[in-house]
Every structure is written in C-alpha cells, then in structure tokens.
Computed example of a mutant assay.
Amino acid sequence: MEYSPIGNAMSLVKVNTFIRSVYNWMFVGLALTAFTAFYVASSETLLQVIFGNKIIFYGMIFGELGMVFYLSARVHKMSAFSATALFVTYSILNGATLSSIFMIYNISSIASTFLVCALTFAACSVYGMVTKKDLTSLGGFMMMGLIGIIIASLLNVFIKSTAMNMIISYVGVLVFVGLTAYDTQKLKEMAITQPVDASGAMVRKGAIMGALTLYLDFINLFLMLLHIFGGSRD
C-alpha cells in the first residue's frame, strides 16, 4: 500500500479533534458535578430534601443508572442535542447525590484526594494513549473485576464489614486505573471509525459517549481513593 503523508496527517487531525472534544465534555461534566455537589452541601434545605427522604434519594440513584443505560443503548438513535442534554443532566444529578461526601469527609481530604485522583487519572490516560500494547485483554479482566466489586458491594450492604469495604476500595482503585487506560486507548479506535458527517452530529454523540465513559472512570476512582485516604469530619 502506498504511503500517503496527507492521508496520515488528516487521520491524525481527526483523532486529535475527536479526543479533544471527549476531554472537553468530560471536564464540563466533572465541573457541573463538583459545582452541584458543593452547592447542595451548602444548603441545609436541599440536603434535607435529598437525604431526608429515602424515596427521593433512591429515586435519584435509580434515575442516574437509568440515564447511563439509556444513553449507552440509544445514543445512536437520538439527536446530538438530546445526548448532550442527557449527559449534562446526569452530571448535575450525580453531583447532587455526591454532595454527601461533604457530610462525611473534611474539605482538605476531599481536595487532596481529588488532586491524587486527577494525577493518577492523567497518568493512566496518557499511558493508554501512547502505549503500543493492545489493552483489550486488560479491559476484559478489569470488567470482570468491576462485576466482582458490584457483587461484593451489594453483599456488604447486609454484612456491613469495614474490612470488606476497604478491600473493595483497594481493588476498585486497581480496576478503575486499568479501565482508564483501556478506555482511553479505545478513544483512538472510536476517533478513526467515526463516520463522515457534515453536520457533526455523529461526532458529537461519539464524543459524549467517550466523555461519559471517562467521567465514570474518574468519579469511581475518586470515590475509591476517598474511601481509603479520606479524613472524617468527626
């Protein structure tokens, strides 16, 4: 096959543009979540409404799960505007439920853990982007680990074991570190296979899905680290 520097350059621009869009949307989601969490935590009324009523709290949790599954399953059939609106709404709703961390951990430990998480995430993401090694097998192994974490967490709701909770957190850090590298590598494949679309709708929807995936990796990694290093307010 004849080497085409122009074709390679165009492919590189396409990949970089797509990946930049993914990270921009991920940062938007994280910013909305952080702002909402802090705002809700600063309002006694909102805290009482959300956490004082189990129906509302669990309704929000199941609503978030529903949004993730719906967006993942229907993103190709919905408009770019709908996909974006759903992602933004999810980020805000998740911020409201995550405001509980301000009632459990002190501000300094939340800030320091966030910094550690950001640096760890960045390192894993860079590795996933530059490595020549195929991380598909790693991704499959990490997904099995994620399923194990979910099952163990559900069991621990009834067992209420502090030791198991810590084990889940340590394993969770390893799992989401691996998933971050794997999901970042997948972004390059997504960028290359994005269909040509003059309106940019398909690219936008692909970027939203990529942003949601990395957003979930970041949030879960942060929560796992917070369980390990977070200092109690008491």
Rank of each mutant, 00 (worst) to 15 (best):
C117V: 06
A118Q: 10
A118L: 15
L119M: 11
A122G: 14
A122Q: 09
A122L: 14
A123Q: 10
C124E: 13
S125W: 11
V126R: 09
V126N: 06
G128A: 02
G128P: 01
M129F: 15
M129K: 11
V130H: 06
T131F: 00
T131S: 13
K132Y: 08
K132H: 12
L135M: 03
L135Q: 01
T136L: 05
L138D: 14
G139M: 00
G139Q: 03
G140R: 05
F141L: 12
F141S: 14
M142R: 04
M143C: 05
M143K: 08
M144F: 13
G145R: 01
G145Y: 00
L146W: 10
L146P: 04
L146Y: 06
I147V: 13
I147S: 02
G148T: 08
I150L: 11
I151P: 06
A152Y: 01
S153M: 10
L155H: 14
N156D: 02
N156R: 05
T162Q: 12
T162Y: 13
T162C: 06
A163T: 12
M164K: 06
M164Y: 09
M164V: 11
M164W: 12
M164H: 06
N165V: 07
N165T: 05
I167N: 03
Y170F: 14
V173G: 04
V173A: 03
V173L: 10
V173W: 01
V175Y: 03
V175C: 01
V175W: 00
V177F: 08
L179D: 15
T180G: 08
A181L: 01
Y182V: 00
Y182E: 00
Y182T: 02
D183Q: 09
D183A: 07
D183R: 04
D183N: 10
T184S: 01
Q185Y: 10
Q185L: 10
Q185I: 08
L187R: 05
L187P: 03
K188N: 12
K188F: 11
K188H: 13
E189H: 08
E189F: 08
M190L: 11
A191L: 07
A191P: 04
I192S: 10
I192L: 13
